[in-house]
Design a binder for these strands. Structure first.
Lengths: 177, 177
DNA sequence: TTACGTATGATATATTATAACATTCAGAGT
DNA sequence: ACTCTGAATGTTATAATATATCATACGTAA
């Protein structure tokens, strides 16, 4: 499978696993861009060079990345990029389901499955900052079940879990404060 | 029951319901303060006048409130309060489980059940900004089950649900964009 | 009384995000 | 080709949120 880091079958619950340290980075960025092209073509939205470039930068970081860090990198190719340059692109990418915002980090990350609308949950490793993107139906259902019971109409769920990933616990067993 | 807006029995799953518009506000603030005193006395931490005052302000707002809004109010009684004044107090209150931070709003809210350690989920009404605090075991379990399956060790869960509360949907039925 | 730790005061600055207005540019209709 | 329009981007300024750092106060234990 050419697309490392994604197992986007119709109802996958793990959208993007923690990144193994060895993988074809260039390929997974390229795959994300091409999925974005498809998606934007489908909804007739314009995937401009700027937006493409920002999406590439998000994917290249391969983990959550802040808007101002993106801005710095963007300036390599666009000397006069300013905060709105980046924020507008990020807004576009979020509206079109190409990236997610991680609220608890004020950061952004590529969506592992832009072809499909889905809820999302994130497991965030406090040590290596890697992130796994999930679309766990059981979590989503548990939330909506309780919300329904209270007459609350759910529009958007933010589920972000901080902890330690398997690799990092293996590396420093039981070394938690 | 003196404590309106709280049904903190041992394993309540709704910690604090949406606020009814009529309730004894003064009483519920007073109850929160007295619960905080108890809690701090128990762990030997010092519940200073400043920290008390900030907690009172958080509860008085009876909904999520931002740090700088708190700062303004705090200045009524402390002319030279500065951002660190507020942020230190907020940090203390969070560390001691007396308030929660709502990541998706950059805001703070009183914890409805400070006597007890618990996970928390929030239902946030996009119209009236009221918030319900939950401790839904099914949600928490769904999260940890999936995390376990991936070898991820959960330390902290952030679950924030945006939508429309029952009162507001009754008020403007089907008026969603 | 001194020494120490905790809390607060005070000043400056970092970080994240948006407002507002100007310019460019591609495509639709003429 | 011309012009109108709307979307995208450029540009400047500022808002909103949060932290770093050093100074001062104050209680308390030695």
């Amino acid at each position: 499978m050419g697309k490392q880091g994604s197992n986007a079958t119709k109802d996958a619950e793990v959208i993007a696993p923690f990144q193994s340290h060895v993988h074809d980075h260039g390929q997974c960025v390229a795959d994300a861009i091409s999925a974005a092209e498809t998606r934007c073509a489908e909804d007739g939205s314009s995937f401009t060079p700027l937006r493409r470039e920002v999406l590439e930068l998000v994917w290249s970081s391969h983990g959550p990345i802040g808007a101002y860090e993106l801005l710095e990198k963007l300036r390599d190719s666009r000397r006069n990029a300013a905060p709105p340059t980046v924020y507008r692109a990020l807004d576009f990418l979020m509206e079109h389901g190409l990236i997610h915002r991680i609220e608890s980090l004020n950061a952004y990350i590529g969506c592992g499955d832009p072809e499909r609308h889905h809820g999302a949950q994130f497991l965030i490793c406090r040590d290596c900052q890697s992130v796994a993107e999930l679309d766990d139906k059981a979590i989503g259902r548990a939330v909506t079940r309780r919300a329904d019971a209270l007459g609350f109409d759910v529009e958007q769920q933010t589920v972000e879990v901080i902890g330690q990933c398997a690799d990092c616990s293996a590396r420093e067993p039981d070394d938690r404060k």
